[in-house]
Amino acid sequence: MIKNTFKNGIKDGLPICFGYLAVAFTFGIFAVASGLSVLETVLISLTNVTSAGQLAAVPIIAGGGLLVELALAQLVINLRYALMSLTLSQKMGNDIKLYDRFLIAFVNTDEVFAVSASKPYLVSKKYMYGLILTPYLGWGLGTLLGAVLGDVLPADIVNCLSLAIYGMFVAIVVPEVKHSKPTALCVLFAIVLSCLFFYLPVLNTISTGFVVIICSVIASAVMAILKPIKPTTEDNV
């Protein structure tokens, strides 16, 4: 069934927003504790909208690090977004104009990408704007709350809230794995690679951003060779 309205976008965006509130909250606490002001912390979230990238930037900024260092860190950690944007470029409906792409790219996070790229049809402009709206607000608001409230919330609650994002990831992957054997194989392959990079010495020193790129590129490329997907005609509705 094709669900491409603004309302559908909002509906799909809400769990992302909810997860971001928690994750951004922890970022807010971390940044202020590291010595950044509340305003600076919120500005970072509103202009970057990345989790790992922002986390890595805080010690560099707080410690007065080099701009080159900051730029390189962002490039390495966030390079995966280039791959996601490339995938997403193939999912854009005909009503999405060039200037829309400049705006959508700004909030193309892992979660926004995952939700829109897993649609079996081309996504519409209204859907995309609905999808990115609440996560963006949630990211900003969560950061503000974390920066201001600090560690008022018990650690157990904050820790468990951070699972929201992962729960969502699982909810996106599992239904697809259930009805597509090649995708299931690809997921299994990616998980094995990911575990190797997590547990093996030397390999586990590679930064998260690179690990995501390396593992997902290898798993997807191997599966694309072994089990190519026959092109289907996709209509923009």
Partner: peptide
């Protein structure tokens, strides 16, 4: 076809890599 297949698998591979095994350590317990 290769590029299309690659892009089809990508989101699921990315999400799996980001979830496993990081998720089980995310709460600190």
């Amino acid at each position: 076809v290769f590029v299309l297949s690659f892009l089809h698998y990508m989101p699921y591979a990315v999400l799996s890599v980001m979830t496993f095994p990081t998720m089980i350590y995310a709460t600190g317990s």
